[in-house]
Amino acid sequence: MAAINFTLNGSAKTLDVRDPEKPLLYALRNELGLKGAKYGCGLGQCGACTVLVDGEPTRACVVPIASLAGRKITTIEGLGTPEKPHKVQTAFIAEQAAQCGYCTNGMVMTSAALLERTPKPSVTQVKDALAQNLCRCGTHDRIISAVVRASEGTRG
């Protein structure tokens, strides 16, 4: 059993780990009670499990817990709250940018990271940033509009 220390949504956390290869996603969902990140593929292909590690969008379904010692992890629960949503979340709600909503976590987290790097992205930059995040319901157009809205830009 090894103890891994990291920062989770702004608070210090210590997790006892039996299998250091266990992906972060299972620790978040089953041990830390944070179920916003979703299991979509376990292969790092779809983005439903996206969290931010030191601000970078990261696939929690494949990143081993052991690799996260000393890192800062932000999940969607730490990005915004119902009382104080992140601007990306406010924009997703305004655009009604979800159907089934299973991919939404990854869309929101990846978009929030994009706006940190690129506060006024073009539509092409939004599409490129989200190119590895899959949506099956076809909500893409609204998601693009939401990210543009959050950046206070226009779709043009």
Binding site: K35, K38, P82, P85, I93, A97, G101, T104, V108
Partner: peptide
């Protein structure tokens, strides 16, 4: 009515 909770990561899916 379900969109805000989905966007906040707080919607209870079957998986959750």
């Amino acid at each position: 009515p379900d969109v805000p909770a989905k966007v906040m990561g707080r919607h209870a899916f079957m998986h959750d």
